[in-house]
Simulated assay, not measured.
Amino acid sequence: MTDSVNRRTAASQKRRRLTAAAAKVLHEQGVERTTLADIAREADVPVGNVYYYFKTKDELVRAALSEHSAHLDDITERLERLPDPLDRLKALVEAWVGRRDTAARHGCPTGTLAVELDKRTDGDLDAEAGAVIRRLLDWAAGQFRELGLPDPDGLALTLVAGYQGMSLLANALRDPEVMTREGGRLLRWLDSLRAA
């Protein structure tokens, strides 16, 4: 019984490493340039093991999207501990700015994946990437709603569009300071909403 439990635990850990590696490598290299061998190397598992857990690259992309979704859950769960919704939104912007070097190198993990998947003619992975972004929009709208502001969905769209734009420009210009400047602009905008 113990050997069976140990094997299941090891298999679960290996699958988890592969999922995290897929999210990282797909973000850094993109779907088309990433091979299963790249992901196996990042996860430090033999390439043959990848096929045991994921039969296709699309399954790995789906796992990476799950990883992005779990990361979003972790962030929003931590932010929910803050008592004020405006503080939660501002902490989110500060977290985005804190990842400015990564954004300058690779863009937003979910946003860049959504754009790349949208260019494919097969499958529904683009919709799954969009669903992760939709969850962020819904969470942000909930914060604006809690603040009692009009048009919370529109405000959430403005916030997330600001993030996507600053990520894209930081990446295109290879300039992490774009995130710093535009993040500061988003923080001032958020403060102005409470003052209004």
Results as ranks from 00 to 15, higher is better:
Asp124Asn: 15
Asp124Val: 14
Leu125Asn: 11
Asp126Cys: 15
Asp126Gln: 15
Asp126Leu: 14
Asp126Ala: 15
Ala127Thr: 13
Ala127Leu: 14
Ala127Arg: 15
Ala127Tyr: 07
Glu128Thr: 13
Ala129Thr: 03
Ala129Glu: 10
Gly130Trp: 02
Gly130Leu: 09
Gly130Met: 07
Gly130Asn: 12
Ala131Glu: 11
Ala131Phe: 00
Ala131Val: 04
Val132Tyr: 02
Val132Phe: 03
Val132Lys: 09
Val132Leu: 08
Val132Thr: 07
Val132Ala: 06
Ile133Glu: 12
Ile133Leu: 15
Ile133Lys: 14
Arg134Met: 07
Arg134Pro: 02
Arg134Asn: 09
Arg134Ser: 08
Arg134Tyr: 04
Arg135Met: 06
Arg135Ala: 13
Arg135Thr: 04
Arg135Trp: 05
Arg135Gln: 11
Leu136Asn: 06
Leu136Phe: 09
Leu136Ala: 13
Leu136Met: 14
Leu136Gln: 08
Leu137Phe: 06
Leu137Lys: 14
Leu137Ile: 08
Leu137Trp: 07
Leu137Ser: 12
Leu137Asp: 13
Asp138Ile: 14
Asp138Ala: 13
Asp138Val: 15
Asp138Tyr: 07
Asp138Pro: 04
Asp138Asn: 11
Trp139Cys: 05
Trp139Thr: 06
Trp139Pro: 05
Trp139His: 06
Trp139Lys: 05
Ala140Trp: 00
Ala140Thr: 04
Ala140Asn: 02
Ala141Glu: 06
Ala141Ser: 11
Ala141Pro: 02
Gly142Arg: 07
Gly142Met: 06
Gly142His: 01
Gly142Ala: 03
Gln143Tyr: 00
Gln143Phe: 00
Gln143Gly: 05
Gln143Leu: 09
Gln143Trp: 00
Phe144Met: 10
Phe144Cys: 05
Phe144Trp: 02
Phe144Lys: 08
Arg145Cys: 07
Arg145Met: 10
Glu146Pro: 01
Glu146Trp: 03
Glu146Ala: 15
Glu146Leu: 13
Glu146Gly: 07
Leu147Arg: 08
Leu147Ser: 03
Leu147Val: 00
Leu147Trp: 01
Leu147Gly: 03
Leu147Ala: 11
Gly148Cys: 01
Gly148Ala: 03
Gly148Asn: 01
Gly148Asp: 05
Gly148Ile: 04
Gly148Gln: 05
Leu149Trp: 00
Leu149Asn: 02
Leu149Ser: 05
Pro150Phe: 01
Pro150Tyr: 00
Pro150Gly: 09
Pro150Ser: 08
Pro150Asn: 06
Asp151Arg: 09
Asp151His: 10
Asp151Ala: 10
Asp151Leu: 07
Asp151Met: 07
Asp151Lys: 11
Pro152Gln: 05
Pro152His: 03
Pro152Leu: 02
Pro152Glu: 02
Pro152Gly: 06
Asp153Met: 13
Asp153Glu: 14
Asp153His: 14
Asp153Leu: 12
Gly154Ala: 08
Gly154Asp: 09
Gly154Glu: 04
Gly154Cys: 11
Leu155Val: 07
Leu155Ala: 06
Leu155Tyr: 01
Leu155Gly: 04
